[in-house]
Amino acid sequence: MSVTTAPAWRPARQEPGWLVRLFEYKPFLVFACLLPAVGLLMVFLTYPLGLGIFLAFTDTTIGRRGIWVGLENFQYLLEDPLWWNAVFYSVFYTAVATVGKFALGLWLALLLNNHMPFKSLLRAIILLPWIVPTVLSAIAFWWIYDPQFSIISFLLVDVLGWRTTNIDFLGSAWPARFSLIAANIWRGIPFVAISLLAGLQTISPSLYEAALLDGSSAWQRFRYITFPMLLPILAIVMTFSIIFTFTDFQLVYAITRGGPVNSTHLLATLAFQRGIPGGQLGEGAAIAVSMIPFLVFATLFSYFGLARRKWQQGEGND
């Protein structure tokens, strides 16, 4: 055989370096990629939360390292009328403000979903209360509720003449409670209205046309088409809204600081009051921790109560 075969040429293969091999090792790569996010979460979320929960089981005060006292702080809170007061007002504040925000927010969203002139300008204006820093709007409300310079009192007394005396918004318990709720509703409406408007816009107009041909009235279209189709988004927006409202701090602390006579303390403001100005870090932490069960319950309720309808899931069920 005179056939000569040239040896097949292969490109030289370089052995990859140890660093390359390390990063090609998937578990390591996963670890390396997750590290920054996990690190940030650990430092800024898990550590403060963990420390807060730990402090709740100690009798730490400012300037003195406490000792482990078990559930003593919580036992004390259960007998503390101020804590019960704050629990009552937190729940009341959240419930009334959420109902108000959703009623008005849904109404606004329905209005804005219609064709009207200057629609985008109106939508931008609606967002304003949400864009303004809370403390700033709280100060504005402080003035609105001022016993002497309140613009509402001015309107009712001096302009319209409906009243002879100024209204005492923040001087006694119930007016103060409702004044704060009104401020919270004002601040919360944009979030609800814009989120629900986004939800409304996902509903196909042909569904309304079909319902129109099926003989529905405007109320029936809302009752049978708009509302059920909005429920999933409503549930998510409501979950967020409840969490934000229940944990509210800025509005109350800026306007009343929990007064008069502790009647408007939310759990968050009471926790701060006890922990920082009062110096009882352990007790303040216990109050903060006591919010967790309420939040978990509210979240589970709105999530499982309102979200996840069968019709949203694509799979067959036969």
Partner: peptide, 25 residues
């Protein structure tokens, strides 16, 4: 009665409820 291009079926109702909707109203 109209049949729409995208059918316009009410997604949150069963087939039965979709068909019975006009009678329900």
């Amino acid at each position: 009665a109209m049949v729409f291009q995208n059918y316009a079926l009410y997604p949150h109702m069963t087939v039965f409820d979709n068909m019975a909707f006009s009678m329900k109203l």
